[in-house]
């Protein structure tokens, strides 16, 4: 005897919105589908995409990381500074990755070891890193590392920018990690029922810490790419990226309470977010409108998910009743 959840109108809202979105683009901004524009969408989306990989893992585990933008900002500033003073590509990449991982470790220890709610931990870390990043950039409000720095992200390989290639490689790697390894399975299990996982003898704290560290590492790489694209850093560069990541993750169907969703969904989400961003630019909408659009988008989609969950509970209670 299997309980089948009947389909409800609410199930069609999200796909419906997606269709309306595509139709809207075809009619209003056909230029969007030109190859060169699509390539630039992917390039623009690379940083958001890489950070969204981390955000997906964090949200799957039932936590949140709002320090993503600040981690990208600060590690980007550190990478620029290192490049400026050493001109060494290897040291720069190393600095970005290590600094990002350390920031992630701060988040991880706060959440897993000291049991501070992730929203508070990452809010605090976010503020620390925003300040640190600005200190590194200094009073000029820009930090120019030189054109040689652009090589990292702007080299064209087989028609795609190296930043886009990096996103593709990292995505493939983490797709395997999240869906095919034990660690990946534990991420889902934490978001599903953390107590049951602990009772199974799994080191819950270590897993949680690792999720945040990896997110930090990915943000370090994001910081490297975002500053390399500009040939240096500037005040408040990339701050607020987390809102795009959260949007991509929820649009991609990952449950905000954890345990459900996939990186493939997030990939679709990243594309939609990057496309919407690109679209707003093509339509030359005021930059102030952006925030409004993103806020409403996240709010609506999370609301749909919550309504769906309520409907599921109702259906189930009704089924128990029918069964009597």
């Amino acid at each position: 005897m299997k309980i089948r959840l009947p389909k409800n109108a609410i199930d069609y809202v999200k796909p419906g919105m997606f269709v309306i979105f595509i139709v809207f683009i075809i009619i209003r901004v056909p230029i969007f589908f030109r190859v060169d524009n699509l390539i630039s969408v992917v390039a623009q989306g690379a940083v958001i995409g890489i950070a969204s990989i981390g955000m997906t893992m964090v949200i799957l585990a039932g936590e949140i990381d709002i320090s993503v933008g600040a981690m990208i900002y600060c590690s980007g500033a550190i990478a620029s500074e290192v490049f400026l003073s050493t001109q060494s590509m290897v040291l720069t990449i190393f600095a970005a990755i290590v600094s990002g991982s350390i920031f992630g470790l701060l988040n991880g220890l706060g959440v897993a070891k000291f049991k501070i709610p992730s929203i508070i931990t990452t809010l605090a870390v976010s503020n620390i890193l925003t300040g640190m990043g600005s200190l590194i950039i200094g009073s000029d409000s820009t930090l120019i590392a030189g054109d040689a720095y652009k090589v990292i992200s702007q080299t064209k390989i087989l028609g795609l920018l190296s930043s886009a290639w990096l996103y593709i490689i990292l995505f493939a790697l983490f797709l395997v990690i999240v869906s095919k390894t034990r660690f990946g399975r534990y991420i889902y299990a934490i978001g599903d029922n953390a107590d049951a996982l602990r009772a199974s003898g799994i080191n819950l704290e270590l897993m949680q810490t690792m999720i945040f560290v990896l997110t930090g590492t990915l943000c370090g790489i994001g910081g490297l790419l975002s500053t390399s694209r500009l040939g240096g850093s500037q005040f408040n560069l990339s701050l607020g990226t987390e809102i795009y990541c959260i949007a991509a993750v929820v649009v991609g169907g990952v449950s905000m309470t954890g345990g459900k969703g996939s990186l493939l969904g997030t990939l679709v989400g990243v594309f939609i977010v990057a496309a919407l961003d690109n679209l707003l630019r093509l339509m030359s909408v005021s930059a102030y409108i952006y925030g409004v659009v993103w806020g409403i988008a996240i709010f609506t989609i999370v609301l749909i998910d919550i309504l769906k969950k309520k409907q599921d509970i109702r259906n189930r209670q009704r089924q128990i009743l029918d069964h009597k």
């Binding site: 395997v176 390894t181 034990r182 399975r185 599903d192 199974s200 799994i202």
Partner: peptide
Amino acid sequence: FSMRSIADNIFISRLPLKGPFKLI
């Protein structure tokens, strides 16, 4: 784990691995 499969639930702490990359 209500959102995981029956098999995952039974073997969560002993997931069998294969291959050089230790995939499930």
